[in-house]
């Protein structure tokens, strides 16, 4: 089932009197339970595209359909509602609330999405348990490692059962082997709960957990040569085999 779709999306930024075109007609689609990586050098428009898919920015032209709802760029007040219902974000900077404990960070996001009281608390505990941080539930972010913070951020994105998870460089602020572990965990959770996961990155480790890899260069998306690798990988995973290419330290250690 198609859960996210972009058709011929362009984005221009106004910079003073100039208009800078960042995306030149991007089309892509995600199925439920599918994991897609978008690779590209810095400045190629990855974050811009992710923001448009996540209804934080709107496209200058083209069509975006999120969870069955066509996004109307003219109706900006509708965007928060789509974000609440359909999107879970994971950021490079984690963006946890420093004054809230691990479990409160997750629970607060649920509160914003409309879940209250005991229901929110038990859902927060469920996802915290899923990312293996039940024993850190009452820790403040400052007392957690980078990897633990990102796991809480993933728990926050998972909480509330949004069908689409969007991650912007989720491993960029983590040590390489921690990043690999977290990607593995992210993959298995997204798969288990049948969420679509879209990761934009220039970290090559992301390929190893992706079903498909797209390349973005100068605002244009193409299925990269590595897609075949990713597909092979996914096929291998689908058959329950080890990945054919040991691309990360953790998988190399298997």
């Amino acid at each position: 089932m198609r859960v996210l779709e972009a058709m011929d999306v362009t984005k221009d930024y106004e910079e003073g009197h100039e208009r800078v075109a960042v995306l030149h007609g991007v089309s892509l689609a995600l199925e439920r339970g599918e994991i897609v990586a978008l690779e590209g050098p810095s400045g190629s428009g990855k974050t811009t595209l992710l923001s448009i898919l996540g209804c934080i920015l709107t496209a200058s032209s083209g069509r975006v359909v999120v969870d069955g709802e066509p996004v109307d760029p003219a109706n900006r007040s509708r965007l928060p509602e789509i974000r609440r219902r359909s999107i879970g974000f994971v950021f490079q900077q984690f963006n946890l609330f420093p004054s809230l404990t691990a479990v409160e960070n997750v629970e607060y996001a649920l509160n914003v999405k409309g879940a209250k009281g005991a229901a929110a608390r038990s859902e927060a505990e469920r996802v915290l348990d899923a990312v293996g941080l039940s024993d850190r539930r009452d820790f403040l972010p400052r007392d957690l490692s980078g990897g633990q913070k990102q796991r809480i951020a993933i728990a926050r994105a998972l909480a509330g059962r949004a069908p689409i998870l969007l991650a912007d460089e989720p491993t960029a602020n983590l040590d390489s082997h921690i990043g690999a572990q977290i990607l593995e965990m992210f993959r298995s959770l997204a798969k288990k709960e049948n969420r679509a996961l879209f990761i934009v990155t220039h970290d090559p480790k992301v390929r190893s957990i992706s079903d498909r890899v797209l390349q973005i260069r100068d605002g244009r998306v193409a299925a990269g040569e590595s897609e075949t690798v990713g597909a092979a990988l996914a096929a291998a995973r689908g058959r329950g085999q080890a990945p054919p290419l040991p691309m990360t330290r953790s998988s190399a250690a298997l």
């Binding site: 996540g54 934080i56 928060p80 509602e81 974000r83 609440r84 219902r85 999107i87 974000f89 950021f91 963006n95 609330f97 996001a109 914003v112 999405k113 926050r156």
Partner: peptide
């Protein structure tokens, strides 16, 4: 900004 991003 995060409050807004998560739908607030």
């Amino acid at each position: 900004g995060t409050v807004k991003a998560i739908g607030g």
